[in-house]
Design a protein around this nucleic acid. Sequence first.
DNA 1: CTGAAAGCGCTAACAT
DNA 2: ATGTTAGCGCTTTCAG
Lengths: 340, 340
Amino acid sequence: MHNTTIKDVAKEANVSIATVSLVINNHGRISQDTRKKVLKTIKNLNYHPSRSARGLVSRKTGNIGFILTEEHFLRGEPFYSKIFLGVEFEARIHDYYILLATVSSSFSKGDSLPRFITERNFDGIIIAGKISRDLINSILKYDMPLVFVDYSLMNGDYPTILTDNIKGGVLATNYLIENGHKNIAFIGGEISHPSIMERLQGYKLALESAKLKSNDQVVITNDDYLSRQNGCSAAEILLNRRKDVTAIFAANDTTAIGVMQCLNNKGIKVPDDISVIGFDDVQADLLLDPPLTTISVPKLDMGTEAIQLLLGIINKENIKARKILVPVKLIIRESTKNVN
Amino acid sequence: MHNTTIKDVAKEANVSIATVSLVINNHGRISQDTRKKVLKTIKNLNYHPSRSARGLVSRKTGNIGFILTEEHFLRGEPFYSKIFLGVEFEARIHDYYILLATVSSSFSKGDSLPRFITERNFDGIIIAGKISRDLINSILKYDMPLVFVDYSLMNGDYPTILTDNIKGGVLATNYLIENGHKNIAFIGGEISHPSIMERLQGYKLALESAKLKSNDQVVITNDDYLSRQNGCSAAEILLNRRKDVTAIFAANDTTAIGVMQCLNNKGIKVPDDISVIGFDDVQADLLLDPPLTTISVPKLDMGTEAIQLLLGIINKENIKARKILVPVKLIIRESTKNVN
DNA sequence: CTGAAAGCGCTAACAT
DNA sequence: ATGTTAGCGCTTTCAG
């Protein structure tokens, strides 16, 4: 038994293979009747064009590479996994396959690139999250369609899907301000990450426009990955410095959870003694009591936007680099309290 | 500029394209000299054979499908993600690409299959974790090479990579017994899952051979997914029933963490009041104090074993279905205590 | 041991 | 509006 080919369809429908091909590819110049007839036999025969044959002649692979670091892939919170799912979903609609490649976060010049790149077995690439500059440079050399998601290069102007982090920072901080908090701390970590910097920026903007002065003592940053441990130790540093903090804005949910666990261990009640707000809305599987107020990031949407932008570039619809900011929103749960 | 093709290599090396092809595919009947010469020009020209062209003539796609449920993919603990990484790693060595597809855990007959299946764009499939019986049936209809990982069908005899759950259950329970515990509880959940049943079986075997009688009151199971919440509520049920439990064997780490958090909330100290042992060794990002004693499952190995078995089947090396048990080992950390 | 040539399934230019 | 055909890059007989 062999797979159904375009020939079988052509014979069965009494047309030439060219006609079948034209129908498949929606080339307008086919009569409605013929089109219908062909479409019907395609369905009857359960015909699916061969990717290999198509790829050979069209010089397209139908594959899109998705690159992220191993750390991000294995991370507890399904942040990048959700972006991947969004990408996968949208890719399916446009008939593309996704090739997922994890890379070391310490990739350096000599290291080998994901195989689909060296073999040129892809039509475009999506890079999710922060990856090493050396890797980016190596990839850029191939000069292929490329979209960044949740990471933006300081220099260079590439198509990018970004969270509106500044807006999110403002949203979170404003919410605390509206609820009467005057002494609001920021716990960051990994401050060299553009997203975190922007969230901090939003925090400062909000304080400013509320005429509250920002105080470096209550802004805790370092350059570690934003883990729970990190959130916890930051909370301890913070409380040693200042006892009068009534609210903490943590730069992501994982950090926020660490903060809450540490406060809990110290007998400090959230939100009664201190309000805590996070960022990302990862809805981690945890016994979080109280549920975390946070800024929601549309992870699936970021994935679909990324594919759409990438396909635009592949199909030469967008010549120029574009940056797209996806909107965030405040999710009010129970870790914050009005102190007015 | 066009991609380097087999023609370019042939011309450059002064041989025919057939010779180049034979060299690439390791067909022995090529002289050492010619082989070396060709290999050298391949390297010089940075030539990579076109997948499309190869696939077209060889009727192989070079793709392997990896199927798991969306829930498993998005799960906090990187259990299946690590299996995926193992698969990816080994696949790369053998020059295969992995197509990752997530499916709904409630897949039923009418639903559409992953696209690589309907398009027959794969040479073999790996199914990771429990998926719906309807999905399995639909996939089996295609009669393609198939390997299960971390899930085994009750009926039917398919190639499968499994954790040695019974051994693990025995190991965990024995360790507690050796440390003087006589009243050991088992907290399961999702008892219909074969792995959990086997872990329970190991628990019972160990008690039996130590001449300790097992007591259904301290075996807590239901049919929920083994989440932290679940571990926590199970711990509460358990302690309401029996106050004299000195050790708890939780059927996976996530459950164990839930158990520990609940005990902590109740002021019960681990391991001073109660010892807790887990299963999986997921090394979740958490502030777990004390660190969890557990049974380690070689997740990456499971992935590599799966590919090797699958490739064996694809290349017709293994005619018969095989089941492979990967070994587990006890990881002693600080959540257990000797009470002798 | 090596080369010539057919043909895998499809697209697209060209012909009708 | 539809058909004919060359050729994409490769593997694989079959000849030499």
